[in-house]
Design a protein around this nucleic acid. Structure first.
Lengths: 141, 141
DNA sequence: CCCTAACTGGACCATTATAGGATTGATTAA
DNA sequence: TTAATCAATCCTATAATGGTCCAGTTAGGG
């Protein structure tokens, strides 16, 4: 339905959970899934492309789990969306002109490439670090 | 797959076809479908919400067909997309917070509402008239 | 009157994506 | 060695997408 599916939404929440826990060593999937209210078996599959993309690191075995492979500020939401949605553009016709016989002469193409650009620029401008600001800090009175 | 489906893409091409033919009276669906390479039976269904939204006008009977109900400059691409995709937002969770139990405290929500905003603003800024510039004008030498 | 074309509504279909479940195997800390 | 934990693969249910195919109705031009 939407080009931002649960994959991106769950994935971003997962990364924010990792970021908020900082460098305390790997955190296991089960605890994150529970905190975030995401089915663990589903989250387990989202984690694979994130690891392949070098966004997170995994440790197997007891006390294993996941941690960020980079600083949260160095992970753009754009990268997360691209990795998890498995495509780089909203519309195939903006990306692969060969898919549409009319693309050379299509008056609507600039509209969609323009949309593509504003979306791309926006998502590139936001990082996991921006979103993962510490929650409810202890403002002592 | 993408939030801009063939409905919006076909629909916009349909409206541009109407716009480019100007005020020459109604144009029948069949000829537009043929010119645009869109299945007529499919296009026939896209046309219904466009009429209901007051974007086009229909004339029945012989010499009947469709024409724009307003000036092309007064039809924003945003309206076309909203009418044809049948929803107003990319993500349900930005639109209907009650759908997500976490929305009150969801750190990712601002990312998606921000995305929503840039998409909305961009599509609102482009009109059918902007796109339907006359093709290959006769630049006399 | 007849032909054209829009309108209405629905049933149907094939393909793909989405969201999730389940099972088994490989690793490793303690 | 054993419990915890990632890793990989297969399975399923539901919905959306992009159509097709009627069958009948209404309205207007010639």
């Amino acid at each position: 339905m939407s080009f931002i599916s649960t994959r991106s939404r769950y994935g971003l929440r997962f990364l924010i959970d990792l970021a908020q826990r900082g460098a305390l060593g790997p955190i296991d999937l089960g605890s994150i899934a529970e905190r975030q209210g995401i089915p663990e078996t589903y989250l387990a599959k989202l984690v694979v492309p994130l690891r392949n993309a070098g966004i997170i690191r995994s440790a197997r075995g007891a006390k294993g789990g996941y941690e960020l492979a980079r600083s949260p500020a160095e992970v753009a939401v754009l990268e997360v969306v691209e990795v998890l949605e498995g495509r780089s553009s909203l519309l195939e016709c903006t990306d692969r002109p060969e898919l549409c016989a009319r693309s050379a002469d299509c008056p609507t193409l600039p509209v969609w490439t323009g949309l593509e650009t504003v979306v791309h620029d926006y998502l590139a401008s936001v990082s996991v670090g921006d979103v993962a600001a510490p929650r409810a800090p202890d403002y002592s009175i």
